[in-house]
Design a protein around this nucleic acid. Sequence first.
DNA 1: TTGTAAGCGTTATCAA
DNA 2: TTGATAACGCTTACAA
Lengths: 336, 336
Amino acid sequence: MELTRTTIKDVSDAAGVSIKTVSRVLNKEKYVSDDTRLRVEAAVAKLNYHPSLAARTLAGKRSFQIGLIYDNPSPYYIFNMQAGVRTRCLEAGFRMIVQPCDVNSPTLLDDIASLIDQSHLDGVILTPPVGDVPEALAALERRGIPFVRVQPGADPAATSSTFIDNVQAADDMTAHLIGLGHRRIGFVAGHPNYAVSSQRLCGYRQALERAGLAFDTALVIEGRFDFQSGSEAAETLLALPTPPSAIFASSDDMAAGVLATAHRLGISVPQSLSVAGFDDTDLARFVWPPLTTIRQPTFDLGYAAAGLLLEFEEGVEAKQLPHDLIIRASTAPPSL
Amino acid sequence: MELTRTTIKDVSDAAGVSIKTVSRVLNKEKYVSDDTRLRVEAAVAKLNYHPSLAARTLAGKRSFQIGLIYDNPSPYYIFNMQAGVRTRCLEAGFRMIVQPCDVNSPTLLDDIASLIDQSHLDGVILTPPVGDVPEALAALERRGIPFVRVQPGADPAATSSTFIDNVQAADDMTAHLIGLGHRRIGFVAGHPNYAVSSQRLCGYRQALERAGLAFDTALVIEGRFDFQSGSEAAETLLALPTPPSAIFASSDDMAAGVLATAHRLGISVPQSLSVAGFDDTDLARFVWPPLTTIRQPTFDLGYAAAGLLLEFEEGVEAKQLPHDLIIRASTAPPSL
DNA sequence: TTGTAAGCGTTATCAA
DNA sequence: TTGATAACGCTTACAA
């Protein structure tokens, strides 16, 4: 029963050096002889010593902790983001503190401030839509806390950030559908509060125009990123006098809603209707019939964001990552 | 630009009391006059003071932090578990530190020890299968760290724990299918390393026997909890001379695999085959055709586990939670 | 290359 | 009901 904690003092005694020297080894400082270093490392291993983060934080300038702040209800997104950030943190010997929040809460700023103060965070990562709250960014800058935004809604180069090109991704998918022969492609837009919604709509429109196809507002329905709104949007689209032969829903949950509605209406997918999605929920893997989807590299976005934060040097760096177009059901319109 | 931190000293100056008195208010200690308390609280609010967790940890006996340790690849499970634990922590003014691990890693014990030592955790929650690693439990006990296991594989009353009755849940589902008229029910078992796998198989068998139906080993296939193994199991089951009219897969991922196979083979669900699942991936909501499923209350299991930990008083308390049978596709076998 | 001493911001102890 | 003082375990100066 170890009731007392192993401290740096125990290690220094065991190694026959001062605690300052042990500290030097722990912090990988220069000016430690190889011989001393080895003796200290042996003592650390033998005693199974794990330095107190609290003490290091209090005494030093760093806490070895960064925060991941999000307001996002998607389990897959959060899981992958956390995994990416954590992986990068581990490499640097840092710990990740996760903190969900509500961007519409009046206490948002205080919640973030409280997290940073209480845990002495060395930096934070903001995922959408938190990174698009100007007051939050201003507060972080005022405190001098380094931060990186993931997929900022606008002006990615204004602060350090990681992102994919949503316009291009939606363009890619739309072009893919056009390439299959589709001429009337329905689009289910995302929640109007999210910057990515308009970006994806923009890509859809851009691809249509390049192909010389008319942008028909009747084919565009605004959703809320969830299953229900996708389901409703499909009802509207499929009830049109001339219904689309393909529907591109700008999130996977909405795409699943489209599939459910198609099934209920007796429209077979992908024979009579092509359905495409956008996200990383792995839904494309599960759903039947299979879904063609844009896969955003959520893990990588988190990994890269943590990297920018940990290598922070007063510079702003915007890092764009590639997206994938995953084709699992590639079908031409029935008329062809 | 606030470059200096607001400390307890600032608050005590502003309130005109000693720092010890501020500390008393912060810790809700007795023997503080109402007048003093109010003055201190006003100063705290005015200065926007957030006490340093590092300092409290170092000086005091508590860190106000508990750990959530898991080795589970399911995003939905982890998301809901984290949410439950975090919600309960928030109520108690605690912080949750999440830590994935690999139960098969040789460094498992050191990883856990390192987390506890570095962050001075006041306790940990272990989700399956971590709670079933005897060496880990022994190590925690040796250190005197309180812990609560979620869904322990065996002997839930040996330590504090929260769980549902998996045997009963599988029995419920099987009985439901039998009630609909099914006589040959296929069963896709879970990964053999998980305790819940045998529990669920046990419930399936128990319900069959109660109904006077034979337990046919040809109808039981061992899976690995994933989509692929469910898909393969369905191929075997549906190729039997007398195929089952219903398949109960003991996880939702496997159930999705069953659905995919059925679709590929042209077997319509639920008209010609009933499919049932088990878990909380929300897959039942997305998948088409809809899935009948046992819903485990993951959020509640986490919430209750954190509750047991935070109210820990040297006593062992095992807490059983109810499960839900969610019926979205309730169909009798085609022969009826 | 190594060591000494003074904090970091709280809480525990003991006294008033 | 309050307050002074010594920890807590480490890092940052500054010496040697």
